[in-house]
Design a protein around this nucleic acid. Structure first.
Lengths: 136, 136
DNA sequence: CAGAATCCTCGGTGATACTG
DNA sequence: CAGTATCACCGAGGATTCTG
């Protein structure tokens, strides 16, 4: 087997690796990429939270979207739903261990955002200015 | 200042911290959460890539979305666009250093997905089965 | 080759009202 | 309190055609 062949193979598998990585990231994003998922996950991470607590704590969320997002997170095993058969009813949501680990991963993203937020804003301004000039 | 007051303050700032974290994650997601952003970023990470290369390499992407996503990534300073004034025209896209760091962060998410993909699938099956039973 | 322009579809989201 | 049900909107994304 020639050296060249080896290189090609290595390159192809590197390509496959990158594609796979992208695919996996998409998988995660499809689950927690919703408009409210992260916020709910974060709130549920610090312990049992009731439906109305979430509704009041998350600015701008509608009752409908809160319900839908909670259902999806529960379906994926990221939060647990506990119903207390009292009257009036009481329901508590808690992040699972899996979700807590995910949160730790998300912190890495936060760090990135922290480091580059100014640079990104500057890039946007520059791009917009540059592009506005061409609009004459 | 009472101990109780201190606790409340600490709790409030912890809350604020979590909210901020969620906000920052959203910031990142708003930039690379699009359907094709990650894949493009991944491809552009391994060096200069031409428009048509991307179009052929990314299954299912339309010419329109490729253009739009590239523009947004360029605007945020995540990729650089280099035009070679030849005929026919040649344009190369490359991930910036900032984007490469982001990619490293995304790998963390990949790891999480890897560890929990089976568990999530199982949770879904269980939830769906459970819920189908209630539909009678 | 690398787009720009146009039209259209569809699903995620919001607003509102009702209920066990 | 913790939802469900229904309607309506809007913008991300797709298909197609045209051009420097």
């Amino acid at each position: 087997m020639s050296q060249r062949n080896t290189d090609v193979t290595a390159q192809a598998s590197y390509q496959a690796l990158l594609d796979t990585e992208a695919c996996k990231v998409r998988e995660v994003l499809d689950r927690v990429g919703g408009k409210w998922s992260i916020q709910i996950l974060v709130d549920a991470t610090r312990g049992p939270v009731r439906f109305t607590e979430l509704e009041r704590g998350i600015e701008g969320i509608s009752r409908r979207m809160l319900t839908l997002t909670l259902r999806n997170l529960e379906r994926d095993g990221l939060i647990t739903r506990t119903v207390y058969p009292t009257v009036p009813p009481k329901v508590e949501y808690t992040a699972t261990e899996m979700a807590r680990e995910l949160y730790d991963s998300l912190v890495t993203l936060t760090t990135w955002a922290e480091r580059h937020r100014l640079r990104i804003a500057a890039a946007r301004d520059a791009y917009d200015k540059e592009h506005a000039a061409a609009r004459t």
